[in-house]
Every structure is written in structure tokens, then in C-alpha cells.
């Protein structure tokens, strides 16, 4: 579905990513993990065509650089970290922006019944239909996160890029979001690339994993094949497995 080959990209002439390559198949969830500053978000920006790069990013054999922004957005949507809100729109207006690329390119085009139905479906999926008329500046961080997830879904893309999507969510909504995304990716020709800090959440959703360190691929493959305590220790420079075992022991003792 998506082929990423020999990607080099960065900021102000300094490469952050060095020769990153991977393939994403239909129905697949790929987790990108690694310490802060390893280039996870930069990789998502490259795939979403938000950052110049060297190398190739091909969707069904077509280089994405050749496509216009609307054509890219039809295929790939990105859920970034929550932006600053300068001007406050209603929840429904914000999610309707995800329908921009599907609307007629005319002077005063109004949302069609289909646009409205898609927005309602997406807001119901994230549990915010009841507050659709509220201004987004009055929402909590978790609610805002879900508004932007609904907007991403409203684009009806084939690939969703998630940049630490559970940052502001409580445990209930983290689990609900994972369940929803697992179901979403199974419908039709779809895939997800997620950047995660929480390895447990990454494991829950993902089939494959790309481990980055200092912009280089540390490991790439099926989760079961590559994930090991040693790999995580080398990536994060701490004893990850030991830390998790300690946490587990604590909870067992509390029981």
C-alpha cells in the first residue's frame, strides 16, 4: 500500500532522519517508537507531505510529491498533537473542516447531507455528538483530542497517521480509542501509522513496529519477531523490562 524508501529529512539543513525505509500493507497498524528527538514526528510529517525530504514515499506506486495537497489529504490524514486555539469554533464546525476536500470547490458551497452524516457518525464514534454546539475553547484537553480525532476520521482517508494520540485521554478513552481504531483499520483498504510513547498501547494496536534511535532504524519488523527486552534497553538506555516487572510486582502486592 505505502512504500517508504531511503528517507532523509530534517530542519534547517540538518538531517533528523537517515535512510528510513519500510512498507505498510492494507489492514496493518505500524507503531513507531523511540526516545524523544529520534525523529518519530518528523517521519509522520514526511509521509503527510508536510516536510521536504529526499527519498521516495509511494502510495500504490505513485510518488506523493507529485500529488496536490487535496489529493494527498484524501489518502492520508494526520492527527497531530493539539494545536493552540486562537479562534474558537463549535465542535461540529471543527469536525466539518475535515470534509473540506470532499466539498464542491464553489464560492459558497454548503455541506451536503452526506457531509453532515459523516460528521455525525464521527462525533458519535468519539462520544461528542451531544456537545456538538459547544465552543472548542471550552473543552478539556481529552475532549479536544477526540474532536481532532473525529476531524481526522471525517476526512475518510485510507491511511491515518497518529502522533501520540492518547496524550490527553484518560484510561477509559484510551481503551475506547484503541478499540475504535482496531475496528476502523479492518474496514476496507486502510492502515494506521502511530507514534507512541506508551509501549503497552503501541502493542495493543500494532502488528508491526519501527524502532528509531537518533534518526536511524534500530529495528523494523513484526512485533513478535523484533520486540525484546534487550532492544528496548538499547533504544531507551534504561532497563525497560526491569522497570515494568517492578511495576507489575507492585500491583500484585497491592492486590
Amino acid at each position: 500500500m505505502l512504500q517508504v524508501q531511503q528517507i532523509k529529512a530534517g530542519y534547517q539543513g540538518r538531517d533528523v532522519l537517515h535512510n528510513i525505509s519500510f512498507t505498510l500493507h492494507s489492514g496493518e497498524c505500524l507503531a513507531v517508537i523511540g526516545p524523544n528527538g529520534c525523529g518519530k514526528t518528523t517521519l509522520l510529517k514526511v509521509i503527510a507531505q508536510l516536510l521536504p525530504y529526499r527519498g521516495t514515499v509511494e502510495l500504490q506506486g505513485v510518488e506523493l510529491k507529485q500529488l496536490k495537497p487535496k489529493a494527498v489529504a484524501k489518502e492520508i490524514a494526520m492527527l497531530s498533537q493539539i494545536p493552540s486555539i486562537y479562534f474558537s469554533y463549535s465542535v461540529e464546525e471543527t469536525v466539518m473542516m475535515g470534509r473540506y476536500l470532499h466539498m464542491a470547490n464553489t464560492f459558497w458551497a454548503m455541506p451536503t447531507p452526506k457531509d453532515k452524516a459523516v460528521v455525525q457518525r464521527c462525533l458519535e464514534a468519539v462520544g461528542l455528538w451531544e456537545v456538538r454546539d459547544q465552543e472548542i475553547s471550552h473543552l478539556s484537553g481529552g475532549q479536544l483530542q477526540r474532536v481532532f480525532l473525529a476531524r481526522t476520521l471525517a476526512q475518510e482517508p485510507r491511511i491515518i497517521l497518529l502522533d501520540e494520540p492518547t496524550n490527553h485521554l484518560d484510561l477509559k478513552y484510551q481503551v475506547e480509542m484503541l478499540v475504535y481504531l482496531q475496528a476502523w483499520v479492518q474496514e476496507g483498504s486502510r492502515a494506521i501509522i502511530g507514534v507512541w510513547h506508551d509501549i503497552n498501547l503501541a502493542l495493543r494496536l500494532s502488528h508491526t513496529m519501527l524502532v528509531l534511535k537518533e534518526g536511524h532504524t534500530q529495528a523494523y519488523g513484526a512485533v513478535d519477531d523484533i520486540l525484546s527486552g534487550d532492544l528496548l534497553n538499547r533504544t531507551y538506555d534504561i532497563d525497560v523490562a526491569g522497570f515494568m516487572q517492578e511495576s507489575l510486582r507492585y500491583w500484585q502486592e497491592r492486590k
Partner: peptide, 8 residues
């Protein structure tokens, strides 16, 4: 970035 990722 948000605007571009929505197709602007």
C-alpha cells in the same frame, strides 16, 4: 500543518 494536512 493542520491546514495542509486537511488539503489546503
Amino acid at each position: 500543518e493542520q491546514a495542509r494536512s486537511m488539503g489546503v
